[in-house]
Simulated assay, not measured.
Amino acid sequence: MTTSARPPQDASQPRRRDARQNRERLIDEARSLIAEHGVDASLEEIARRADVGVATLYRNFPTRDDLVRALYDIALAELFAVRAEIEAAPTAWAGVVLYTERLAEWLVADPSLPPILKRMATIDPTARPSVEFEGFIASLVAQAKKDGDLRPDVDSMDLAVLVTMIGSLGTLGGGYTGQWRRQLSLVLDGLRMPEKPRPKLPGRPLSVKEFQATVHGLTRRAKRAARGSRSAD
Rank of each mutant, 00 (worst) to 15 (best):
Q9Y: 07
Q9N: 08
D10W: 06
D10Q: 03
A11M: 04
S12G: 10
S12Q: 11
Q13Y: 14
Q13W: 07
P14C: 12
R15A: 09
R16F: 11
R17H: 13
R17G: 02
R17C: 02
R20S: 12
R20M: 09
N22M: 04
N22I: 00
N22C: 05
R23D: 04
E24P: 02
E24C: 06
E24M: 12
R25S: 14
L26P: 01
L26M: 05
I27T: 09
D28Q: 11
E29F: 05
A30T: 04
R31F: 02
R31H: 09
R31L: 05
R31E: 08
L33G: 00
L33R: 08
I34M: 01
I34N: 01
A35T: 05
H37M: 04
H37S: 12
H37Y: 14
V39I: 06
V39E: 15
D40Q: 08
A41V: 11
A41C: 14
E44T: 15
E45F: 09
I46H: 02
I46T: 14
A47Y: 10
A47L: 07
A47P: 03
R49L: 04
D51E: 14
V52N: 07
G53W: 03
V54C: 08
V54E: 11
A55W: 11
R59C: 05
R59E: 08
R59F: 14
N60W: 03
F61Y: 10
P62V: 06
P62L: 14
T63A: 03
D66T: 08
V68D: 00
V68L: 05
R69H: 13
R69T: 13
A70S: 06
A70T: 15
L71C: 03
Y72I: 00
Y72F: 15
Y72C: 01
D73P: 06
I74W: 00
I74F: 00
A75D: 11
A75S: 06
L76F: 08
L76N: 07
A77K: 12
A77V: 13
F80C: 03
F80H: 07
A81V: 04
V82C: 08
V82G: 03
R83M: 14
E85V: 10
E85K: 05
E87G: 15
E87A: 09
E87Q: 09
E87D: 13
A88D: 11
A89P: 10
P90E: 05
T91V: 06
T91S: 12
G95S: 15
V97G: 00
L98R: 10
Y99W: 11
T100W: 01
T100N: 07
E101M: 11
A104Y: 00
A104L: 04
A104S: 09
E105T: 06
E105V: 00
E105A: 07
W106V: 02
W106P: 01
L107T: 03
V108Y: 02
P111T: 00
L113E: 04
P114K: 02
I116M: 11
I116D: 01
K118I: 15
A121S: 14
T122Q: 10
I123A: 01
D124N: 10
P125W: 01
P125A: 11
P125G: 08
A127C: 12
A127I: 09
P129R: 07
V131E: 07
E132G: 12
E134H: 11
E134T: 15
E134Q: 13
S139F: 01
V141A: 10
